[in-house]
Computed example of a mutant assay.
Amino acid sequence: MTRFRYVIGDVQGCAEPLQALLAQCDFDPIQDQLWLAGDLINRGPGNAAVLRYLRSLGERATCVLGNHDFFFLAVVAGAVEQGADDTLQDLLDAPDCEELVDWLRHLPLFHVEDSFAMVHAGLLPQWSIAQAQSLAHEVEVALQSCDWQAFLRGLWGSKPKNWSDDLQGPDRLRIIVNTLCRLRFLRLDGSIDLKPKGRPEETPTHVPWYEAADARWRSHTILHGHWSALGFRETGQVIALDSGCVWGGALTAWRLEDGQVFQQACACAESSGKRD
């Protein structure tokens, strides 16, 4: 029987703060469960250590993929190249790189349990929880297929901007991934805008995805990361968990059973100041 479930925001390769936070939570891998809201790697110094630890937890860890995790897989697939701010070389050089890639490819993009749903970035207001699960599964099938490299080579881009149930092929899969792994803001006409990254109060011409009117996903409490400018924030049924560990902020854990918050200061600050 599970004692506690802890959900943690973007680790981004900060292995030491992760272990310090788990010690602060008194996390017990026998009795407790650990949920990770994506961006497990990149920008921090301990990517391989983070993945090895989470993989070692087996069914006691539930992780969803974030945009940085997808980026690493795309690097492996030859779809993109590392930039100056990326810190993925320890993974690419790791003797167990192939095994870690395979483990990442088999992670979900969306997790639902009881009245909670966990996603890295966000959801579109048109999507119910059940539809979001189904759409995430479409991407998971492609990512776990024998042709996963080709899928990733056709994934990159920011279009289409509007969801339609009639979308097919790469456009359909791309907007699903962009929503679940990159979304922050919607324009006032409901279209997706992936460029703004600041706080909502600094972007009055846009609507945070979680404030969209008549959203069909409001049957559940949504747990997400990705938006470090928000910091830890509880907004009604939405819990934002990216408190900017890799930017010199903190790594945050939220306990599902009682809402208790745990935070660990981080020293592995990324120096460029370029958040994504």
Rank of each mutant, 00 (worst) to 15 (best):
L124R: 12
P160A: 09
A213H: 09
T221Q: 15
G244W: 04
N162Y: 07
L155E: 14
V238H: 03
L186Q: 03
R174F: 02
P125R: 08
P160R: 10
L241C: 06
T203N: 14
L155M: 15
L155Y: 00
C245H: 07
L256E: 06
S128E: 03
E138G: 02
A215P: 04
E211N: 11
S243F: 09
G198A: 09
A229Q: 14
M118D: 02
R187Q: 15
S228I: 12
S158K: 12
N178M: 02
L167W: 10
R172I: 05
S145H: 05
I175D: 10
Q144I: 00
W217D: 08
R174M: 06
R218P: 03
R216P: 00
P196V: 13
W227N: 01
H226R: 07
W217M: 06
R172K: 12
L124H: 03
N178G: 07
T179E: 00
G157W: 12
V238G: 00
P125F: 08
P208D: 05
R172T: 08
W247G: 06
V141L: 13
V207L: 11
L186T: 12
K197V: 10
W156A: 13
R199E: 14
S145M: 10
I175F: 07
F232I: 00
E201V: 12
K197S: 11
Q263L: 03
Q144D: 13
H120M: 08
A253C: 05
K159Q: 15
H137Q: 15
R218H: 12
T252E: 04
S158R: 13
P160H: 12
R174S: 08
G190E: 04
R153D: 13
Q264G: 11
L183R: 02
I176E: 06
D166W: 10
L180S: 02
G248E: 11
H224N: 03
S219L: 05
V141H: 07
I239P: 06
H226M: 06
V207S: 00
T221Y: 07
L123D: 07
L135K: 01
Q126L: 02
A142N: 08
S134N: 09
E202D: 15
Q149T: 13
G259R: 10
T179A: 09
L124S: 07
M118K: 02
L152Y: 06
E211V: 00
T221D: 06
I239E: 06
A229N: 09
Q131M: 14
Q237G: 15
W227C: 03
R199F: 02
I175W: 08
